[in-house]
Amino acid sequence: MSLYSSLNKFLAFAYKNWVMSKRNVFTIFEIAFWPVVSFISVGLMSRYLSLTDNQTAFILIGAITFSSVQVCQLDVGYALLFDVWSKCIKHTFITPTSSHHYILGSSLVGSLRSFLVLLLLSLFGYIFFDFNILEVGMTPLLLIFFAIILSAISIGMLVCVCVLLVGLRAEVAAWSIVWLFLLLAGIYYPPSILPPTLQFLSNLLPLTHLLAYFRSFYLGGGAEFEILTTYILLFIHIAFTSVLLHLATRHAIKSGLLLRISE
């Protein structure tokens, strides 16, 4: 298989997500409305509670990270959900593509949308809440953004696993799974306030360590090892979800689910 052919296969899924998103009115809501409303709400809440600058930064970082992950993971989930909603998933699976083509292709558009969310929220943070994301520095910011995309990919892959296991009923997973991370990773609070069992689970999530790294630029504390942990955990999560995705694909082909959700 040539590199050119593989590149086209990967771009096919980016193209699909791009055109479908372009014509979907919800795209505006996903990028601008919901993240901005949520961001401004928590920012105003921090004002009302008279939080310090550091405490405000703590919360705003959680809101920015969560929204950026959420919008990108939706795109990865859409790689299959658009086909399920269109009832044409069998036509996608009869093409000589693999899961890495549709995951990476859709995450390309997801990265763009995630970047827009990050940019928009950072701008609002700067204008309304004196929060300057550039304090982090360019290289750490790139590391953070890349980790956000990889986190979104691993969550989006879980959505794809659900689609291939239960079909259309899994669409709720596209919007729900990420909220579990909201609870466990400590988006708006430090994971140390969680019960011990949940703290243990929280420590296994890359997002927890990514937030710790991101926040360390505002709250102090040497957290260089946090970014390393983030990437190690991301590698493990993606490897694990890849295996799950492979098994789920086999299940969908063996059980006939692929055909049932195409009718």
Binding site: Y4, N8, K9, D83, W85
Partner: peptide, 24 residues
Amino acid sequence: NPNFLWSLTAEENLKYFGMAYGIG
């Protein structure tokens, strides 16, 4: 009773599937 991506045009649907076959 064919089904394809609903908001893509005929040309776009063919382009998507063509690319998925590695053609460009």
